[in-house]
Amino acid sequence: MSEKEIKNLEEIFEQRIARDEKIEPKDWMPEKYRKTHIRQISQHAHSEIVGMLPEGNWITRAPSLRRKVALLAKVQDEAGHGLYLYSACETLGISRDELYDQLHTGKAKYSSIFNYPTITWADIGAIGWLVDGAAIINQVPLCNTSYGPYARAMIRVCKEESFHQRQGYEIIMTLAKGTPEQKEMAQDALNRWWWPSLMMLGPTDAESVHTAQSMKWKLKRKTNDELRQQFIDQTVPQADLIGLTIPDPDLKWNEETGHYDFGEIDWDEFWQVVKGHGPCNKERMSARVNAWEEGEWVRDAAMAYAKKQEGKKLKKAI
């Protein structure tokens, strides 16, 4: 294709995006669009799968049968999200095995929040309330993103995430209303998860390298800082309602802006965790790699069996 032809296609493509048309897998797309989407969708899929680990950590120890069943179902939902996000990603011409390989070799990233440990039951509530809460804020705009398969996957993901968020808040609320020991557990979880949750919305706009391009392609509709503000404004009253304190002495309602002012985020911590040196980066990755390696003989068996069955069918047909 000549340069002129490509330029022409690019123009048509940008116009389609501007008209809010969906881009579908078989449509022509710029290589950079394809690559950016593989990066973001796979990062999202990996986050779902790695995100199963910190919560899975409490399934066997959940405090009641009702909570155990709900947590199990929730973690299973995350697996389901992973499954359809990987499928959406595969429509861009990359295989699931390649995507796993990128995760296992550290080439692909996943949400840093999952590199923090879940050390009490209240952490399960805090993850649902704060982490899923922040995730929803990130993800709701993606239901209208330009790439069709991703947008459609996100509609389902968001429905389930908002259910998880309510469930998490309900766990925390139960603790906050419980015995002093339970309330302390809830407050401690909030103290540990608050700042990492704010970091989940990504680096500040000034530091964010992908924002401008992503906004143009409607892969992003608001900047990181806008999303973070929205999360804080939404979450602070929820904490107030159940008598928990946000661990930020600088947090203050600002009449003028109609938003909460908040304290300085420790970006050194953020970058440390992103670069692989958080409390559980090593554990999360080795759990994923182990599951994959230990499952190899099982996957091989399934393939071999399917081949044999196919052969038998063929023989019969002949």
Partner: peptide, 12 residues
């Protein structure tokens, strides 16, 4: 339930 998140692939 101990296995949740550690299966040989997502489907299983």
């Amino acid at each position: 339930s101990e296995l949740c998140g550690h299966g040989p692939n997502l489907e299983t």
